[in-house]
Design a protein around this nucleic acid. Structure first.
Lengths: 157, 157
DNA sequence: CCTTGACCTCAACCTTTGTTGAGGTGTGAG
DNA sequence: CTCACACCTCAACAAAGGTTGAGGTCAAGG
């Protein structure tokens, strides 16, 4: 360990990567994108506060739900800037995400319904059910990879 | 309508695009990628069989669930090549997708649980719950945009 | 003293899912 | 006959979410 003096309050990228399971390059990327932040030590190396691990947990969890980084970033910007976020601060975000989650679960359940009723019953409305989904907002999105999230606005099609 | 003679059995890209709500460029793309196929008329224009609309419905529906095109393609290749797929053929795919759907719904529900128990109760295991998700396969995936699907294998990290 | 390991920056590249545009063909209508 | 319109191909670009590599710094251990 070349760069000793492992403080209890600050972690290097390497340590953070190891503890979070997120690669160093991804951490750099997240910092560039403004999802996490760090200070620098005398040798210009990043030092992350301990609570960064929570931000990372939140980021990863949100990604698993299909929320794009840009949206996650917005949410994270609602956390207090100066002090270490408390349980209550996270709870606010948690409640917001719950709503999103519930919508997505509903989406999937509706889809599951469609699959069994439209295909299962042999009716002819198969493609109407699947294709012309009445409350399908995603179809209006622009180019690029599609995600489950209603997502950020994009240029017109 | 310059190119008249609208057969009941074959559609031009334009017609298919209009009926499916999928752009012409996307249809070209799907054909290049082998998700749909067409024959050509005398003037080298694409002619799609009527049942292509069902394939498209299936593709769109699958995408809404977060399944990548490569996986959808594989599934579609299980449809009979020669004849027009029947209800029963689609039902097979439908059942497969149901399984995927159910897994994803479970994923999301577990996540919702985690959010309320780990954040809501104020316990300290927040990041353990969210970050070290025991059956999280996605974390092992490579670069690129992440999707909800367990997905196709990728090069090592 | 020199090597080694962790760190730094910056630019280039990767995949997915398409869109956009340039340049060309074919045909039905006026 | 000419125009407009739908179609064709091929190449380039887009956005998200990173990875990879080149070239350089710094401090500890042999």
């Amino acid at each position: 360990m070349p760069r000793g003096h492992t403080s209890y309050d600050e972690w290097s990228v390497g340590q953070l990567a190891e503890r979070s399971g997120i690669s160093v390059s991804a951490l750099h990327f997240y910092e560039r994108e403004g999802l996490i932040s760090s200070s620098r030590n005398a040798g210009n190396q990043r030092r992350f506060a301990r609570h960064t691990l929570r931000r990372l947990a939140f980021i990863r969890a949100s990604q698993r739900v299909g929320i794009p980084l840009a949206t996650i970033k917005e949410a994270l910007h609602e956390l207090p800037e100066g002090r270490t976020p408390r349980e209550a601060d996270w709870a606010v975000l948690g409640r917001r995400w719950r709503t999103v989650l519930e919508q997505q679960i509903e989406q999937l359940q509706r889809m599951r319904e469609d699959l069994s009723t439209c295909i299962g019953c042999g009716c002819l409305s198969f493609q109407r059910c699947l294709l012309v989904n009445p409350d399908d907002e995603m179809a209006k999105e622009g180019p690029g990879a599609r995600r489950l999230m209603p997502g950020t606005p994009r240029p017109e099609r």
